Amino acid sequence: MPTLYLIRHGQASFGADDYDKLSAIGHEQSEVLGQWFAAEGITPDLVAHGTLRRQKETLAGILRGMGLEMQPEELPGLNEYDFGNLLKAKYAAGGEPEGMMTDHKSHFRTLRTTVAEWQRDEIPNPPEMWAEFTGRVDAAVTALMREGVETVFAVSSGGAIAQAVSALLETPGVHQTKMQLQMKNTAVTRFIYTPRSIYFHAFNETPHITAANSDRLLTYA
């Protein structure tokens, strides 16, 4: 059956001046995933990413690992929400927690509370409304599951992939955040689809990360 593989980007550059690029580990994760797809005989008919650099670099690494050259579609709807500017909107008057963009624990604790407020439309002047975010993600995912295409690889981000799953399962927003916070870098989530139905088939899989390489390749940011 036709399958959409939603792939989270590889490890980005957390704490750096420019987060939106893969670390050395992120590049390796991407190529190793591509090698796994090739070994399994899974070849895409369509590949896509958002407009973010870390998504583009991840797809390039996957294709390199597979020994393929393909022209990807670029769908802005696959982009992550702008957490940095969401924080600026929330803390426009100051009072932001220390280390929220450099310390992992502070970052994810702040993310949980901030996104919950955003989902309730409690943050003034956010970079986009929660409904706008969910709408663009849903539209991008729907556009990818088209007739005549059997296998789709789409590189996105944790929040967007979690939203796609949450929408399919019709869960409250709090579960979107819970899914996002457990998502691994280069993890694969699968939807199977027909012209009439969409089925949730797998979430957050990393078959390319094994006991032999997990100490190096298992990351979350």
Rank of each mutant, 00 (worst) to 15 (best):
G159Q: 02
T113N: 13
A16S: 14
P72V: 07
A202W: 07
E150H: 15
A162V: 06
L218V: 03
T134R: 09
G158P: 00
A89V: 03
E57K: 03
H27S: 12
D215C: 01
Y199M: 15
M70H: 06
R109I: 10
I161T: 11
F108D: 02
H107I: 00
F153E: 07
G50A: 04
D20E: 12
R8T: 09
L46A: 00
G26R: 01
M66C: 08
P126L: 14
W36K: 11
S156V: 14
R64V: 13
P72N: 01
Q182M: 15
R196L: 15
V137A: 03
L63F: 10
T210N: 01
K105R: 02
N204I: 08
L169F: 02
E74P: 00
K105H: 02
L87S: 08
G77L: 10
E117P: 01
A211M: 02
E205T: 00
T113H: 14
H104R: 08
A187E: 04
D18A: 12
A164Q: 09
T3W: 05
L218D: 04
Y193E: 06
E170I: 14
G173C: 12
N204A: 10
P97S: 03
E205N: 00
G94K: 07
D215L: 02
P127R: 08
Q176T: 14
F14K: 03
V155T: 08
T171F: 13
L6R: 06
P44G: 05
G99Y: 00
V137F: 07
G67E: 11
E150T: 14
E150V: 08
N213P: 01
P97R: 02
E122C: 12
